[in-house]
Design a protein around this nucleic acid. Sequence first.
DNA 1: GGCGTTCTAGAATATTCGTAG
DNA 2: GCTACGAATATTCTAGAACGC
Lengths: 159, 159, 159
Amino acid sequence: PSSVSPDTFPAKLWWLVNNPQILSITWDDRGQGLLIDEHLFISEVLETDLSFAPGLEVSWAAGSSELFKTRSFPSFIRQLNLYGFHKLSKGLMPGRRPGPCHGAGDSNGVKHGCFLHHFHSPYFLRDRPELLVHLKRLTKANKAKLLGTKDLPSQKPNQ
Amino acid sequence: PSSVSPDTFPAKLWWLVNNPQILSITWDDRGQGLLIDEHLFISEVLETDLSFAPGLEVSWAAGSSELFKTRSFPSFIRQLNLYGFHKLSKGLMPGRRPGPCHGAGDSNGVKHGCFLHHFHSPYFLRDRPELLVHLKRLTKANKAKLLGTKDLPSQKPNQ
Amino acid sequence: PSSVSPDTFPAKLWWLVNNPQILSITWDDRGQGLLIDEHLFISEVLETDLSFAPGLEVSWAAGSSELFKTRSFPSFIRQLNLYGFHKLSKGLMPGRRPGPCHGAGDSNGVKHGCFLHHFHSPYFLRDRPELLVHLKRLTKANKAKLLGTKDLPSQKPNQ
DNA sequence: GGCGTTCTAGAATATTCGTAG
DNA sequence: GCTACGAATATTCTAGAACGC
């Protein structure tokens, strides 16, 4: 299927989160969401030529050593939203206090922004790789299709 | 509070009042209203970086720090009103004497303002977390909706 | 006027760009656009308590030491867009080459993202402070008003 | 046409100020 | 005096739109 072809965003994301060499994207405790360290992700993925990283087995298009063409973190976020991910600034996870951000801050108490992002998609779960085929780009056509089918748990944006 | 969007005001309020570490917001005797110690709330919540507070469950404490972006107590009160809370200052709650304020005065007899606030919402009750879904922001749209429905599952404050 | 009241975004932006102590936001060569160094801006403005910076003469709200309540650069960009600023990435300004980004790259040839942003508004010009009154938030109401008038920035329509 | 990247806008909540009642 | 609310701006998350490949 198109969504699992190795050149598309979902495949790259799956590869990133499941690669122990990549530290900036990890599963959350329950394997139901992504934890993304913005600063680390920029330096580790967006600004790095992964073909030089040992043990990474980058098997993307031959000459292309970069995972993404962009070096812009907002563009990466746009992709997440295009594929139906939603930010969990939220306590859907037990043990989290409410608030817009639950990952920032450093050991020195230096105040800075929210750079640990928590994203979720019902079709992107650590222990359910078979659901990946449902992770489709939310084009107008795909969104129209989703309105007709209700066989799988769909997410309600907002509230 | 699973069905309540967790980074919104109601979720934060619920978290605050039910957190034994937070002393400035507590349930009243019957669990039907909030008791808010203004001075303590300012120092304990509004002006405090909660992520570094000891004993506050460090799992989420790594984070961004502030529950609210404001440090203004009136802004906090504005939120209470936006979500339909009303101040109980007229003896509506049993065991409270009527009058504009039942928390003023200190041990030195110094006369000052009312710093113990008593607020109530029919959808914010200690033993009825399922009612939280009805605690909606009173925007124009929401207010229009409420006019159409009269199925208020009102757990009334005792009179 | 509302747009130049000291608490609003335009006033803060004007203060920033004209303050020689602030290095992250400067006028471009012709004084017709803003040059914003993203990384420097984050550390210098968003994450810094400006009240402690010597020589900055911060005269914002007394207790409030921060210029913005956000520490998120995207939120800052959202404000620029809300006030009608547009990114100059297409060679619209003379002396700039076209392309999506003209600030990336460093002396070491290290590849990194576009972190020098070039924004423009016809009402935010270095030598035309009197035009600031026209820099209005693009709310629905204001946008409706603008549809009626098609005056160019070089004019001084009303006032 | 689909996908990726970029810039901008929509929509909901949050914060502030002022003022009616 | 004091409570409640309208209205404007601010912040956040998501989506639209345009363009290139």
